[in-house]
């Protein structure tokens, strides 16, 4: 099939970017979305042009590298997919596809379709861990964890840190990302001891880094490729407020 691509091109962090149109013929329905861009890049290189820079690595939806805003939605059409899992079968001959990088003050664009998501690591540094040193762990089965808690913790822990929640949020809030970590660790006895402190520190860091606040629109949950629930944001709020009233 033949498609028209409208792709954001930007030389570097400081440059002004703009959209460039590409007409791409001979796209196969079997291709994944990223294979389609690889195909475009091959043609660009062979024509002496610069290929479109974008991030990707595992190509199976788990590393969180790929991050394209496609036709107005993070990771494009379809639910519970990362960009690398998106297939061209979702598009039709003659379609125009608009491709942008994640846009947020805290995720500055580095080049073309690559936004710098280092701010997520900075949020994690504020407390996204259990303060346990190697060697001091007790026997793994010494503390049973109720299966429902463990399962729910897992549902939060599957966050891949792709940033689609921020990209989707009209406030560029990182609440779902923070909630996934706080909720995961709050549900487990191992992480509970530091839970309130963790919630406050991570929220404070999130604010400091220029992410917006949550207005509960639910766009993050709808766009999260791992389907992380808003319920985790409620738990984050709870952990935060408990700590807020305590200190």
């Amino acid at each position: 099939m033949d498609i028209k691509l409208k792709i954001w091109r930007q030389k570097d962090r400081k440059s002004q970017g703009s959209f460039v149109d590409y007409y791409l013929t001979g796209v196969s329905r079997d291709m994944s979305f990223l294979e389609m861009i690889d195909y475009l890049n091959k043609k660009l290189i062979e024509n002496g042009d610069e290929p479109v820079a974008y991030e990707h690595d595992c190509r199976e939806g788990i590393c969180g590298s790929c991050a394209l805003y496609i036709n107005g939605r993070p990771h494009g059409p379809g639910d519970l997919v990362t960009t690398c899992e998106l297939r061209m079968i979702k598009f039709n001959d003659g379609d125009t596809i608009v491709i942008e990088p994640w846009r947020a003050k805290s995720f500055p664009v580095i080049k073309d379709l690559i936004a710098d998501r280092n701010a997520f690591d900075k949020i994690m540094e504020a407390g996204g861990f259990v303060s346990v040193n190697t060697g001091s762990a007790p026997e793994a089965n010494s503390i049973p964890v109720p299966k429902p808690d463990s399962d729910e913790a897992f549902d939060a822990a599957i966050c891949i840190g792709c940033g689609a929640c921020v990209a989707a949020c009209k406030n560029s809030s990182a609440m779902l990302f923070v909630a996934a970590k706080v909720s995961h660790l709050a549900l487990l006895p191992q992480g509970k001891a530091e839970s309130g402190k963790r919630a406050r520190a991570m929220i404070a860091r999130m604010d400091e880094l220029g992410f917006g606040s949550c207005t509960n629109t639910g766009a993050c949950e709808a766009e999260c490729p791992k389907g992380i629930s808003l319920a985790h944001i409620a738990r984050l709020n709870r952990e935060f407020l408990k700590e807020g009233f305590r200190s």
Partner: peptide, 21 residues
């Protein structure tokens, strides 16, 4: 007002019809 400043460069196309009310 704080939230207003969190996305200085807007998206060219936004489709939130299915994802939020």
């Amino acid at each position: 007002f704080t939230n207003q400043g969190t996305r200085p460069q807007k998206y060219a196309l936004v489709d939130q019809s299915e994802t939020s009310s």
